[in-house]
C-alpha cells in the first residue's frame, strides 16, 4: 500500500511538472489544419489574436473538431481579437463552436460586411453584438498587448465577397505575417499601391487558387515562407500547381499535408514544427 501511495505521489509530481512545462505560454503562431478553409492564431506574452475560424459544412465543423483541440493544446482559453476576413463559410464557419468554448473579447470585420446577411447571422448566433464588433473602413493599426495588427480593407468597388477580403498583417517579434483571405491578384496589387507592410511569411490567397498569389505580390514581399491553407480532396483543385510554382524559392508549407504549422519563439528566432510527421496519440483518438 505504501508503495502505491509512493507511486501516486511520484506520478502526481511528474505530471504536474510535465503539464506545467508542456502548457507553458510560449510565444508562437500557427496555421491550423482545418480542411478547406483558413484559421491562423498568434500569441505573444499571453495575448491571442486569431484570423478566420475554419469551415463548417454539413456535419463537419472544423471549429469543434480541429480548431478547438489545436488551441486547447496550445493552452489558449481566451482570444483577445478575432479578425474575420470575409463572410464565406470556409472562413467564419467555426465561429459558433469556438465562441462556445473560448472567450472572444473583440471581433474585427471590414465595414463593407456590416450589413452582410451571412456575417450578421453568424455573429448573432454566436452572441456578438454592438460594442464587441469593430468595423474597419480605412487602413488601420491596432495593438493588442505586444501584437501589432495592420488592417487594409479592399477597394470599395470590389465585385465579389472574396475581393472584399480584409488584409491582415500581424507583427510578432521579428516577423510580419500577411493574411489576404480569398482576395485575387488585382486586390493584391491594390494593397501594394497602399504600401502594405512587407512580410516574411505570407499565406497564399484563396487557398492557393491560381487567381491569387501574384508574382507582383511575391516580389513585393520576398517571403521566406509561403503557407497554403487548403483541404485534402478539395473539389477546387487548390492549391493550383501554377500558384505553387510561383512560390518556389520560398519555403512552401501546406496545411493539408503538413498538418498544424507552428512557429515557436526560441528567444532569438522562430522555429517551425508541423504535426503531420509526429502523429501524437491525441490525434489518433477518433470515432
Amino acid at each position: 500500500m505504501r508503495k502505491v501511495s509512493g507511486l501516486i505521489a511520484g506520478v502526481l509530481c511528474v505530471s504536474v511538472a510535465w503539464d506545467a512545462w508542456s502548457h507553458r505560454t510560449v510565444d508562437q503562431f500557427s496555421f491550423i489544419q482545418v480542411g478547406q478553409g483558413d484559421c491562423a492564431v498568434f500569441r505573444e506574452k499571453g495575448t491571442v489574436v486569431m484570423v478566420d475560424t475554419g469551415p463548417r459544412q454539413g456535419s463537419f465543423d472544423a471549429g469543434r473538431r480541429l480548431v478547438w483541440p489545436a488551441i486547447r493544446d496550445l493552452g489558449i482559453d481566451r482570444i483577445d481579437c478575432l479578425v474575420l476576413s470575409h463572410p464565406d463559410m470556409d472562413h467564419i464557419g467555426g465561429l459558433l463552436s469556438i465562441s462556445q468554448r473560448v472567450r472572444i473579447d473583440r471581433i474585427v470585420v471590414s465595414e463593407v460586411f456590416r450589413n452582410h446577411p451571412v456575417m450578421q447571422h453568424e455573429l448573432q448566433s454566436a452572441g456578438f453584438s454592438g460594442h464587441q464588433i469593430q468595423y474597419i473602413n480605412q487602413n488601420s493599426r491596432l495593438t493588442f498587448g505586444n501584437l501589432r495588427i495592420s488592417l487594409y480593407p479592399a477597394p470599395p468597388d470590389s465585385k465579389s465577397d472574396n475581393d472584399r477580403s480584409l488584409l491582415t498583417v500581424v507583427e510578432t517579434h521579428n516577423k510580419a505575417i500577411a493574411l489576404t483571405g480569398d482576395a485575387s491578384q488585382e486586390i493584391e496589387r491594390f494593397w501594394i499601391q497602399q504600401s502594405a507592410p512587407k512580410c516574411q511569411i505570407i499565406k497564399a490567397g484563396h487557398h492557393g487558387s491560381n487567381l491569387s498569389l501574384s508574382t507582383d505580390w511575391l516580389n513585393y514581399h520576398q517571403p521566406e515562407t509561403v503557407v497554403f491553407s487548403c483541404g485534402r480532396n478539395n473539389p477546387f483543385g487548390h492549391p493550383a500547381p501554377e500558384a505553387v510554382e510561383r512560390a518556389v524559392g520560398s519555403n512552401i508549407l501546406r496545411t493539408d499535408w503538413d498538418g498544424n504549422i507552428t512557429f515557436w519563439w526560441t528567444g532569438t528566432n522562430f522555429e517551425k514544427s508541423t504535426t503531420e510527421k509526429s502523429s501524437p496519440l491525441m490525434k489518433l483518438f477518433n470515432r
Binding site: 506520478v11 502526481l12 510535465w18 503539464d19
Partner: peptide, 21 residues
Amino acid sequence: LIRLPGFSVLSLVLMYLLLLT
C-alpha cells in the same frame, strides 16, 4: 459543458490511479 485545460497522458493515468485507490 465544462471546459478542461489540456493535460497530459500522465495526468490521465494519475486520475485513474486515484480512482483505483
